[in-house]
Design a protein around this nucleic acid. Sequence first.
DNA 1: GATATTTGACCTGAG
DNA 2: CCTCAGGTCAAATAT
Length: 402
Amino acid sequence: MAESSGGRGRGAAPTGAGQPPRSTIPLPPRSAYEYPFHGDAAAGGGPSEVSPAPLTPVSSFFALDPDSEFQSFTQLLQGAMNSPAGAPPPQRPIGEEPKEAERDSGGEVERGEEGVLGQQNVEITQPPQIFTVPPGLSPSRLLGSPRFSSPDPGNFGMSHQQVLAQVTAQAVQSQFKMHNEAECSSSLSVAMATSLTQNTSSPINATPTQEMSTLTSNTDNNTFESAEGSHSEQRSQPTALIIEKPADDGYNWRKYGQKMVKGSEYPRSYYKCTHPDCRVTKKIERSVDGQIIAIIYRGQHKHQRPQPNKHAKGVGASPSGSNEWNENPGIPVDSEPGSQAYPGNFSRSDETMVAHSASERDQESNYGTPEQLSGASDGEETGDVELGTDEGGDNEPDPKRR
DNA sequence: GATATTTGACCTGAG
DNA sequence: CCTCAGGTCAAATAT
């Protein structure tokens, strides 16, 4: 009861008592693979939901373009690619299987689109920063990535996702500007990077757009590879796998819940800032692979980020490893939380930041621009921001969306 | 032993 | 008013 949310009279929670020891989740690495293909959710959730919903948004997104009539994802990409930042058609290193491609397009990418679209509604701020790769980004990973090495990250290992990301980014940026100028009051900032975890990437390139895409792309590849490798074909990347940590943005988060969301195929994890006074929460959707599909922040940290120092200050020390954030100039901390942030509209949480596809580190980026985001507000309701935003294009069929 | 994660149940809100 | 889904809590478990 003391809890903010309502006290749940959950005295009766002996549920666990009778439960046998649950091991972790039933999702072996391979499930990641299969999952997308088969379309059945890992959680046994709804297979049916998977397909249509996600795709729609994408289509919608493209629909913005006159040429949107592309039939295949590739076409879409190509069409989009016309843009300056465009990249050549992707070749999935891993993806020899067509399914892979489908999955990419069907799953994360789409989600990314959502995010993008969402941004339209929401206020977006300085995409560049968002996409910037945090100093903390594990360089080792970046360097380690074969793709990274390639001079042309953009083209070389680009995957659909990457392409999409680029396209999306461009579109978003355009919309951004428009929106920003038009509405500076909004508050949600969205970081979209369509992609996956570990970004590895490479900001090397310079354009924000590219950064983003690159980021995603590399990541994506890596991730997939690892996942796949671990199980079937094994590429040779013993390394790593996806992050298990919730997104390190420099703050300490504690997971307090996980649920399968109807609209999405991926489970959503709920995290709370461990800081005593901080009520910031964030929701992370991750694919089976562990890739982060979306991150939604709620609230603003009123405290400083815990020092990454291993000393861990009080709450701070991020157990998980937040080193990256230290330097981040865009510290959300206290970033004028509310002052300008809330026009007064929103009643719920302070602001929500949505990061699509970003890997954990990506989030950082997005997180890093909280201030910009701080506008929050209106996003209507924070949570819905993501979904609601889609409407920009067309709204997806989120079947279950009410 | 402490802390973090997992997971089912419960509560709230929206349609 | 009912139902569904999202969000949160807290016990159990794992590290």
